[in-house]
């Protein structure tokens, strides 16, 4: 069987930079994501990974261009970017803590007005994260850290993303929970969902990602194939420059 001939590049970013006040937190970067890919963004704390995610969504003032499926992603309009299918699970999860789990999921599907489709997506999230099912009526803030991360991912899936961006989903979680979440992300990706996964702990994603960008002091220092990385020393070399 031959694959249909179509441009496989879904996201292309050129010269994207971001500044907070007078500080350029993200120096111009270029990156791209191909259809069905899981791309990792690695780097130490403060390398600009979260800023890159926020810049992609237009949450911070930026320069440069972001194109998604050939259409320009508007700057400074994250709601519009979300409507295009670019969905970010932000650092710290960004769940609506005083609201119930059910309400959080409902807001994930804010742009959807089709009840049947809503039920379909809801079922899918419940299948992926059965633990959320028992907690639908609870406030999101009462969940454990792992459950909150599942809710954040579940909420993002409710919008049926075309590209899922995750900013350090492992932060503050127990290894067993991290493994569970990464496994789910792997499943989603194998089912065709392109993912950008930001991580500080590189070893976590090396088995999942086919490509990884290494960030350092506000810019992309290297692009690597994680499968080629033989040792932690080699990776440390990229981190330390």
């Amino acid at each position: 069987m031959t694959a249909a001939v179509e441009p496989s590049r879904i996201l292309s970013v050129e010269g994207l930079s971001a500044r907070y006040g007078h500080v350029e937190a993200l120096h111009p970067v270029d990156l791209h994501v191909e259809a069905g890919e899981l791309v990792a963004v690695l780097g130490p704390n403060g390398a600009g990974k979260s800023t890159l995610m926020r810049a992609l969504m237009g949450l911070v003032p930026t320069q440069g261009s972001v194109a998604f499926h050939g259409h320009a992603v508007p700057r400074r309009n994250p709601a519009k970017a979300a409507a295009m299918g670019l969905v970010l699970v932000p650092e710290g999860r960004g769940i609506f803590a005083p609201m119930t789990v059910a309400e959080n999921l409902e807001l994930g599907a804010y742009l959807l007005n089709d009840k049947q489709e809503f039920a379909r997506r809801h079922d899918r999230v419940m299948t992926l994260f059965p633990r959320l099912k028992e907690r639908l009526a609870q406030t999101a803030g009462s969940l454990s850290g792992g459950e909150q991360q599942m809710l954040a991912v579940g909420r993002a899936l409710m919008s049926d993303p075309k590209l899922l961006l995750l900013d350090e989903p492992s932060l503050g979680l127990a290894p067993r929970v991290i493994e569970e979440i990464l496994q789910t992300l792997g499943e989603l990706n194998r089912a065709g969902l392109p993912i950008i996964l930001v991580e500080q702990k590189a070893p976590l994603v090396l088995t999942l990602a086919r490509r990884a960008y290494i960030m350092s002091v506000g810019s992309i220092a290297a692009e690597i194939d994680p499968r080629q990385v033989k040792s932690h020393d080699e990776l440390a070399h990229f981190y330390l420059g």
């Binding site: 949450l59 994250p78 709601a79 969905v87 932000p90 609506f96 409902e106 807001l107 804010y110 909420r155």
Partner: peptide, 24 residues
């Protein structure tokens, strides 16, 4: 109502609300 919930979401976390596609 969906709009009412969206307004509450904006008051809890404006950035996260925008990321859900809510026109803040």
């Amino acid at each position: 109502t969906k709009t009412g919930k969206a307004m509450r979401a904006c008051s809890i976390n404006r950035d996260a609300a925008a990321l859900q596609g809510i026109p803040v």
